[in-house]
Amino acid sequence: MSDQEREWPLFEVFIRARSGLEHKHVGSIHAVDARMAIEHARDVYTRRQEGVSIWVVPSSQIAASDPQDADALFEPAKDKVYRHPTFYAIPDEVKNL
């Protein structure tokens, strides 16, 4: 482009598909503010009744874990099998447990 134009900020879009479900990330949208982001997200991401509710969050406001830290973050849960019901041996005769 010939001259420097300020780019519209980026928002991440989350959509609740049906009442009772959680909002799920679907993509991003450029808009000057949150209100416009919701209107544009409606046009881009819900043309076929994909949602009943929209959240938008400035992309710059999202903090994410680093994939390289995945082991440090999630490894400790792996050796705690006693947190799952199948860890406990219960005789077959015992019902409703």
Binding site: M1, E5, E7, L10, G27, S28, I29, D43, V44, R47
Partner: peptide
């Protein structure tokens, strides 16, 4: 009209996916 609007929407989904790789929308349009 619905179909042409869809094409515009598809462009938006794809620009959004490309932006995750570190190129800006303005760079691509440029």
């Amino acid at each position: 009209i619905a179909k042409v609007q869809d094409e515009g929407g598809h462009g938006m989904y794809l620009y959004s996916a490309a932006e995750t790789l570190g190129i800006s929308r303005d760079q691509m349009i440029g």
